[in-house]
Design a binder for these strands. Structure first.
Length: 281
DNA sequence: ATGCCGTAATTGTTACGA
């Protein structure tokens, strides 16, 4: 399985670029974030014409996530258990959920496309919301791997955290002042790893950014951030054979400000192997 | 070079982004 994640910054504004990439790179599963449309506005036909099934979750012009897959997607969920909500003036336990998560089972792999809240500012209510959201995601991960430790689980998307200083090449993003690089955010990311996930791209692609702001020549100057990740359970990590960050997708006409991150997985059918008749035995 | 903000509500301006 070739699995990709991409914050597309509007699926309608660049659907042809997205589908062209998925076809050209022979992507099996493409997790998208910031589709920026309602489900009924999603350009389904162009994905289906290219041979993809699509599950999308979008409720307004903000946020929105989707998964396009060559194999059918089952067990679709549009939030994970415990996921908090947020709205202006309504930040409590009953706040409405945003369209920031969609999960499904694809060829035995549980895939989640995630758009972690931005945070906006260290003193902003959105920052506390971001940390609550990440803690809920950690709790979900811990719970599911406690009961299914061998599950191939992939949490992919825009985590809006630069986990190390090497992941921050933007001179305007400063520790102590900015979101994305604060200790609580980095601790929250590390807690996901402690819950049983690992970044399956970094061992194969140790450096490089996945996002460059549209302003201030950030891309030509290569002043970006690495904030888009593919986190996998042990079963996923053991299956990964290759990884890539498609930096070239930031070039040309009408790019997203993020680029796709891709892994190849060689997934043995663990249970099926045990059931195979011993023809040669 | 990869080039100086883009998108989607809306129709002048605001919200959002990282």
């Amino acid at each position: 399985m070739r699995l990709a994640t991409w914050n597309v910054n509007s699926v309608r504004a660049r659907v042809d670029r997205i589908v062209d990439f998925a076809v050209r790179e022979d992507i099996d599963v493409l997790a998208m974030q910031e589709i920026k449309c309602k489900v009924e506005q999603f350009p389904l036909e162009k994905f289906e014409a290219a041979g993809f099934h699509v599950e999308a979750h979008g409720i307004s012009q903000w946020n929105g996530v989707a998964i396009a897959s060559r194999s059918p997607i089952t067990e679709v969920e549009t939030s994970f258990p415990g996921m908090p909500g947020f709205a202006k003036g309504h930040n409590g336990p009953d706040a409405p959920l945003e369209a920031r998560a969609i999960g499904g089972l694809i060829d035995g792999v549980k895939v989640w496309s995630l758009y972690v809240p931005n945070g906006r500012g260290l003193d902003d209510p959105h920052y506390a919301y971001k940390l609550r959201w990440l803690e809920a995601l950690r709790g979900y991960t811990h719970a599911i791997l406690a009961t299914q430790p061998d599950l191939p689980l992939a949490l992919v998307g825009d985590f809006n955290i630069a986990p190390t200083d090497a992941d921050n090449g933007d001179p305007t993003i400063i520790e102590g002042v900015s979101t994305h690089v604060s200790a609580p955010e980095r601790d929250a990311f590390a807690a996901l790893e402690a819950a049983g996930l690992s970044d399956v791209v970094r061992p194969l692609v140790p450096t490089g950014f996945t996002y460059w702001d549209y302003k201030q020549l950030r891309f030509p100057r290569n002043e970006g951030l690495r904030i888009d990740f593919i986190l996998g359970s042990r079963a996923v990590a053991d299956a990964v054979t290759a990884a890539a960050i498609h930096r070239d997708e930031r070039k040309g006409e009408g790019p997203s400000d993020h680029v796709p991150v891709v892994v190849d997985m060689d997934l043995a059918d663990g249970e099926a192997d045990d059931d195979l008749p011993m023809i040669f035995g």
